[in-house]
Design a protein around this nucleic acid. Structure first.
Lengths: 335, 335
DNA sequence: CGCAACGATTTGAACGATCAAATTTCCGAC
DNA sequence: GTCGGAAATTTGATCGTTCAAATCGTTGCG
């Protein structure tokens, strides 16, 4: 095959200008006269020239690459929220000329090792982090290195400070709870995670707040468990039989699916149906007809990319460092 | 921050050798005396030196990057098989020194445009393709360009010829069907996709073959529909009520979840339970207790990477061009 | 007319690595 | 002691791009 990829010099010769002028047309058009520009652009088009990123990178130290860790395999998580998020970031990044590199890591330490390698060897421009948690070593490490990054998820620690985008989980469970209140339910139970996870506590707070606002005492209406379907089944059973809950809001779709299964089993034994609302709009929720709270993932991803480009262009001082997005309810059969 | 990243020259000075010797230690150790090697390695370790990929790439035209398209957002697909596959490829690739770049595309043409750009601008080493189908333009394009690639999925067209790894869908539905036969069922229905998709036809063939081998005539025991939960519900209803099926094998988990829902509704109305077996071991299947056929994704991914490295090292003539892996049954409540 | 000031364009050097060729070192044989 | 040849190491050139400085060309103004 004809393997003579055109270089900037090829283009320059064809357009009868110098290398640098071609470079300027691409990187600083205002410096080049319109007519010359046109001639150069024509040559570029005719030859199908595309700049060689490695050569450019060698000079500029910009790779136009952003990196993300892929969510680990997880049997429990019906979610795949993070997979969809990776997709969305990739898509948004492409619009700004970024390509996305993914990697895997077993824990935060391993993830930091990856950052190290990616920075040194590939000169990554920026990182997008997911799954922030209390005392996140990753964010402090990146800050210390002065690396541009944005997290999808707030910093839950007190002192941590960095750029982030997040979805307002509290508002989400809030609207879910209000929907159930509007339908006339009072004793609305919450299937939660054990206290201590930022996301879980935040989501619970929304439910609690709405309930209180309606004059219902939330105490005794929470049961917590790990993020599995089986645990959801168990929590739901306990809430319904022991605490006489009339409706359920769940911290995530995974336990919600368990709760839904429990309700359906109950109905098939002649019991009454109770509404169940989940969180995350996972594929499983769609499949099972679970009403759920959906995160605006595309918007979140687009915002992450926007913040990153702002950071890369203007440095720290760019404004608008945190963005909190509102989730919305997806109504299906279950509630 | 101290931004004096060590270069090969820094290392060379420290070890009192020349640039080239350092390079040789890394790329052709046999050319360097053991003692010198040791000295160089010590210097590398002390300085924390890592080769600059862009500089290396500029010279060698190897990027150590492989690229994959991410599966599109799809409401229907409870699967995320492809997301898990991307993860697995990334993981395997890392063991061979590859990093993985992901991109999105709306259709095959768009995907080819991406290949073009990635090859020209980033000098990708290889591609991993998923979702092969009849008359796949992508594979012929890549072949014509002489680009190394492996597909996860066989070429379903007659003339297409390239390196691939796949999972034996036919064998999968075969063992599922046999399990149901062993349990004493005879009229085993198949919930399929419309004829014409390679994967769908292959999976159906496995069911059909096992049924025939047991002396059961498969005609009239297939109903097909699109890959949605609702369609699965419909197909299952039809198979059970109209064709008196006693058990169901499904072409994928998505319709299987619909079928399962139908069966459970039936049971709650006092009907008898029928076994249902799905395909793909999606998170939804685990959540719903669906017995299903699991693809060995990690193995498939590892094999893809192995084939690619073989191709990159030895070129076309390396052997072992196609690998067909056996799936296995994951037994849960539904069958 | 000469010169300053500016805009457009070109030239030389550099980024950090590897390739290819040249040079030095080492060793054994005569 | 010298020489040939292989092994080990070094040197110079190069990959394709951008940066920084130099050059060329116009225009305006005293």
């Amino acid at each position: 095959m004809a393997n003579d990829r055109p270089t900037i010099t090829t283009v320059a010769e064809r357009a009868r200008v110098s290398r640098q002028t071609v470079s300027n047309v691409l990187n600083a058009p205002h410096r080049v006269q319109p007519e010359t520009q046109q001639r150069v652009r024509a040559a570029i088009a005719e030859l199908g020239y595309r700049p060689h990123r490695a050569a450019r990178q060698l000079r500029t130290h910009r790779s136009n690459l952003i990196a993300m860790r892929m969510a680990p395999f997880s049997e429990d998580d019906a979610g795949s929220v993070l997979d969809r998020f990776v997709h969305a970031v990739t898509e948004s990044g492409e619009r700004f000329g970024f390509r996305t590199l993914v990697f895997t890591a077993t824990d935060d330490g391993d993830e930091i090792d990856n950052y190290q390698d990616l920075l040194n060897s590939y000169e990554l421009d920026a990182f997008v982090l997911t799954g922030t948690h209390h005392r996140d070593r990753r964010t402090s490490w990146l800050r210390k290195q002065g690396v541009p990054f944005v997290t999808f998820g707030r910093p839950w620690g007190v002192r941590a400070k960095h750029w982030w985008v997040d979805v307002d989980g509290r508002a989400g469970t809030g609207i879910a709870t209000e929907r159930l209140l509007d339908a006339g339910h009072r004793r609305i139970g919450f299937v939660g995670w054990p206290v201590g996870s930022g996301v879980g506590d935040d989501r619970r707070a929304g439910w609690e707040h709405s309930l209180r606002a309606a004059g219902v005492e939330p105490a005794g209406l929470v049961v917590t468990g790990e993020n599995t379907v089986a645990e959801g089944y168990r929590c739901a059973t306990e809430l319904v039989t022991r605490h006489r809950a009339e409706a359920l809001v769940c911290v995530s779709d995974t336990p919600a699916l368990g709760a839904l299964a429990m309700i359906r089993d109950r109905v098939s034994r002649g019991g009454t149906a109770l509404p169940v609302i989940g969180f995350d709009d996972s594929p499983g929720a769609a499949a099972m007809g679970l009403t759920t709270i959906a995160q605006p993932l595309r918007e979140a991803a687009a915002t992450c990319v926007r913040l990153l480009t702002a950071f890369l262009e203007d440095g720290e001082r760019a404004t608008d460092h945190h963005v909190l997005l509102a989730p919305h309810l997806v109504i299906r059969d279950s509630g």
